[in-house]
Amino acid sequence: MTDVERKDHASSREPLLSVRGLSKRFGGLQALEDVSFDLHPGEILGLLGPNGAGKTTCFNMISGMFSPTAGRIFFDGTDTTGVSPAEMARRGVGRTFQIVRPFPSLSVLENVSVSLGLRRYGSLGCLLGRWGTRSVREEAREILASVGLADLASRRAGLLPLGNLRRLELARALALRPKLLLLDETFSGLRAEEIRQMELHVRGVRDAGVGVLLIEHNMKVAMALSERIVVLDHGRKLAEGTGAEVAADPRVVEAYLGKGASGHA
């Protein structure tokens, strides 16, 4: 599939995620103000911006951790504003965290197994069904293999280095079989080789029809991966477009490099 075809394919469908006029205020701080964008299935949308621009706040509202002060979030055809994180996971949103949050006392395999229980946590079956069965372990192992962690399955997650933890978080999110994947700086702190591998994983997920929303500090990575980019600054949407369009926007250059820099860019 070429990029042009994919774009047509994506825009012909209903958006997977629609964010409309989203605002969040923490006390006196306006963290996010009137932000709107759409994301289609099988699309990678980059969410860029300097530190404190409101990117993670935006993620936390989409995944249900915070309720917005104003605005609405539509996911998969329904209004999901203010729905709990656990419920959002059930509806098909998987996420990673900017500062990795593994379950440190559990093994890598057990970490992924937690996600595999998704369909059972809502019913009484969670008391009777067992998680250590062969089929669950095999499923977890398969997902770990897909991100290259199969060898470390029995290792305690708390003992892993950052690169492996980022892959573990991706594996946990993928084990939810999400329709939407939120990646919060999944590439940061990784070595060049690890970044290349992670890019392959993310492209693979996108090609399977999952919508990917990506927060990224590494401009090169973000430009290479994202079909479209939304730039936030001080909680507001500054620009939206393809990587080239956004990079040429003087307001974006100014937000990143300061006033006067646009002349040199």
């Binding site: 656990a86 959002m88 996971a89 996420r95 965290f97 949050r101 559990l106 057990e110 996600s115 946590y121």
Partner: peptide
């Protein structure tokens, strides 16, 4: 209990409540 899905959900909660919630484990329920 430790072998049940509910047990695994509790272990996840004990280690990181926010991460567990984002994987479908309702903190209050478990």
């Amino acid at each position: 209990f430790t072998r049940s899905w509910a047990g695994l959900a509790c272990f996840a909660l004990r280690d990181d409540e926010g991460a567990a919630a984002s994987m479908g484990v309702s903190p209050v329920r478990f």
